[in-house]
Design a protein around this nucleic acid. Structure first.
Lengths: 310, 310
DNA sequence: TTCATTCTCTGACTATAGTCAGACAATCAG
DNA sequence: CTGATTGTCTGACTATAGTCAGAGAATGAA
């Protein structure tokens, strides 16, 4: 598997990657071209450009100066904040950007050109699959403080979705509590999933005395669905519960959340009688955990240990 | 389709391409690292390195000097030819190369790490498909002089394969002739397919007075099979025959060449009674060509015209 | 108001990647 | 043997990409 991945990297960076660099810089240094592209049609604050391209502030400043000298962009101060400066493309800059766009299309078309219709369809399908799975693998999952802004944002999105989907809406105050304290160690924990720094999912565990831990707040952003993230969060939570000594985990859910219920069932949860008085729940589930230390359930970000020997 | 390709390029070159560059240069300039890698375990002539990496001779010389100064490689004159110099890795150089190899494995494994077993299998399968099809699209097909060395090499390989596969072998002199003259314009033409400059297939057309043109010398190198190259060569030959005014093309083949026969049938050829006395043939085929100018059959290396509007 | 912070810019650097012309030695074709 | 060619190296360049320290203006917090 690893060798297939390496071979893929070689082929693809040669074929697809090299292209990008070559034509993006039409006479112009690559850095300038990238910046020109990134400014986009509606302009952009310089600090955003810096963040997106991960470049030094002095360097960006100089690149912008050269774009200005070539008459491709103008830089002016932002009206909202006098410290911030905003770059905008001139008409010539826009035209140049269109050319790049066109060249990019041509390069992509040239890749498809020599293939038959059937091959094209297969290529595009396989590309979409690779892209989807590489995106899935780029998602990072880790313990987070429920008070930090991205966790808060997920929580808000989660509640908003519940009140949209539940019959009669959702009011967090009527639901069984799970406040920041309860979702932070040692009382519990919150897993946050991020993609390129953006929060795209959460899942929480609440430990209880003399009772199995509860799984709470399972949520995946719409943009990150179909990537197996729900299953990954669930498995990670189970592993952490097991690592904490739990033999069983439980959760409750609402009948409106059909895909979640499907996930729980397919992950080995069985429905049990109500074990609490959660007013929004229609189903209660329970799963027996494997003993930790078997290795199979332990989260392993690099994954070497889980790979077959070859 | 084009936008999917572009999206793929963006995602994948970010994820796979960037990796390569980052870890290959561990403290060392990327150029040196690439050279170190390319020298390989058994050493390599400098001129080969230059050709493979497409670098300036002075530049390579300097890079080698720095590898020598770091004690990673030695350069000595070739025993076969005093002008040529050969680079070889020292023990330290080998060790360094092993580290790069290991890091490359790790990077690939890290890509697979966060995925489930099922996702990994799907990813690797899709990667293989993308790679295969990108390789197919990297093959260039064009008219070549049958006298040029790569065409000769294909012809030799073709005859060798025939004599290996035919019952009782194959002797070109007993077969109906198709000499260099007959396969060069205006009497005929030879299509040569190359992948990264290496010849990987041929196909020829021989025009005849008052008779439909013959398709001859259809051959695809073992390394390039399964890429749809045979079908592509055949379609290209048909298009050129049609462009030449032919309404029909014909060909004959030996029963040992089962996959070729399958290709002809599926490409719309129908078996006809023997139209010549080729001693090695068991099957004779014929196909009606569409009129040229419909666009569908015209070879179009860039392919824009054949793509759907969006 | 004051002080710390944020955002951008300038000046002064460095390293990498690469090009080009010419020198020199070995080899090959005639 | 001669002259052309091939392969390598050196010297002298250039451009790109990027880093770092500090200055100065605008803003926000106390």
């Amino acid at each position: 598997m690893v060798s297939q991945v390496r071979s893929f990297n070689r082929t693809v960076t040669e074929r697809a990657g090299a292209l990008n660099e070559t034509f993006l810089s039409r006479g112009r240094p690559l850095g300038q071209a990238r910046l020109l592209w990134e400014i986009g049609q509606n302009g952009s604050d310089i600090r955003l450009l810096r963040a997106r391209l991960d470049l030094d502030s002095g360097y960006v400043s100089r690149l912008l100066r050269s774009l200005e000298n070539d008459g491709l962009a103008v830089v002016e101060r932002s009206r909202a904040d006098g410290r911030v400066r905003t770059a905008r493309l001139t008409a010539r800059g826009m035209a140049e950007r269109k050319v790049l766009d066109r060249l990019s299309d041509d390069a992509a078309a040239a890749l498809l050109g020599p293939l038959s219709d059937r091959q094209r369809t297969r290529l595009v399908t396989a590309m979409a699959e690779v892209e989807r799975l590489l995106t899935a693998s780029a998602i990072q999952v880790g313990v987070a403080d429920p008070r930090e802004p991205s966790a808060r944002a997920c929580m808000r999105a989660y509640f908003a979705e519940l009140s949209r989907r539940f019959d009669g809406g959702f009011d967090p105050d009527r639901s069984i509590s799970a406040d920041d304290e309860e979702l932070s160690p040692p009382a519990g924990l919150l897993l946050l999933a991020t993609l390129h720094g953006e929060p795209v999912g959460i899942g929480a565990l609440r430990f209880q005395h003399d009772r199995p831990p509860d799984i709470k707040r399972m949520w995946v952003a719409a943009a990150a669905r179909g990537l197996g993230l729900g299953r990954r969060l669930l498995a990670d939570l189970e592993a952490r519960a097991a690592g904490h000594g739990a033999r069983v985990v439980r959760l409750e859910t609402n009948r409106a959340l059909a895909e979640a219920i499907g996930l729980y069932r397919s992950a080995g949860y069985r429905e049990v009688p109500a074990f609490n008085e959660e007013p929004y729940a229609h189903h209660w589930f329970e799963k027996d955990l494997e003993l930790p230390g078997s290795g199979a359930e332990v989260a392993d970000p690099v994954g070497r240990a889980r790979l077959p020997p070859a």
